[in-house]
């Protein structure tokens, strides 16, 4: 009567596999609720999770199973919408693109809101200053003359010129990692400059000069100290600092 069931039970430990892929992780989350306390505090959550899951899955687990009051933004959850930029283990990342196994789950994983913007609740910040700077650089195509009946043609080389900066998803990971932006929030910030770069170097656009003039402002590109925090933070791998330097160079070379 050696049943298959018994055999399987014997075989299981022999295979050398752990019973479960789950490990216990600690999420240390910066909580802030202005309706309860004016102070932000750290709160630890311990739970089991597959290390191949993402930090966002951990946050979901907390919100759905452990503490429904945890507040954070996320929309597509696949690294495109740019809603869930947060400071994970001291570095700005998208929670939906960060695997738990990649950030040393043996230690508590700290999750904070991005810096330099007013925290509204838990991980949600006020993005208005960020988008104000974005709006200020006129992030849209400006042309004169008659509209062509079909598309505006552009050569592959002309398109390549600004290809890198078209990847921006406006998650604010770069701007909120910039120490100059942290100071008073008046600096345009890397994201706005990246999106200006996208149009300044677009051969179809005709308002490049206007945008350069906007970025020539006291709080424009000249406040960049090339600390490269933005390039490190960008979840899309945009060479942000390089783009800012190209705008600086254009400001100098197009005028003199």
């Amino acid at each position: 009567m050696a049943t298959p069931t018994l055999d399987k039970e014997d075989a299981k430990p022999e295979a050398g596999f752990a019973d479960t892929p789950y490990i216990t992780v600690t999420f240390r989350i910066r909580r802030f609720n202005p309706e309860v306390s004016a102070d932000a505090t750290w709160e630890d959550f311990q739970f089991e999770i597959d290390p191949k899951e993402r930090v966002l899955d951990g946050l979901h687990k907390i919100k759905w199973d452990l503490d429904g009051s945890l507040t954070f933004r996320r929309s597509c959850a696949h690294g495109i919408c740019g809603s869930d930029a947060m400071r994970i283990n001291g570095k700005n990342r998208l929670a939906c693109k960060t695997l738990i196994k990649d950030i040393n789950p043996a230690k508590p994983i700290t999750v904070e809101p991005i810096k330099g913007l007013t925290v509204l609740k838990d991980l949600v910040v006020d993005m208005d200053p960020f988008f104000q700077a974005y709006r200020d650089v006129m992030p849209f195509l400006v042309t004169t003359g008659n509209e062509p009946t079909r598309e505006r043609l552009q050569s592959a080389e002309d398109r390549e010129r600004f290809d890198d900066t078209t990847k921006c998803i406006l998650c604010a990971a770069c701007t909120s990692s910039c120490p100059v932006f942290w100071n008073d929030g008046q600096y345009f910030g890397p994201a706005a400059i990246v999106n200006a770069h996208r149009f300044i170097f677009d051969s179809r656009d005709e308002a490049g000069e206007q945008r350069l003039e906007i970025l020539n402002d006291k709080d424009g590109v000249w406040r960049c100290r090339t600390t490269f925090n933005c390039t490190d933070a960008c979840p899309r791998g945009i060479e942000v600092t390089k783009a800012i330097q190209e705008v600086k160079r254009a400001l100098i070379t197009r005028r003199f």
Binding site: L117, T118, L120, P129, Q132, Q186, D219, W222
Partner: peptide
């Protein structure tokens, strides 16, 4: 929460930014 003034908030009273090239 405390509000950060939106950068370059433009109202009717805001004077035109002096786009000096000092920087």
């Amino acid at each position: 929460a405390p509000l950060i003034e939106a950068p370059r908030k433009r109202t009717t009273k805001t004077p035109r930014a002096t786009r000096g090239n000092f920087e």
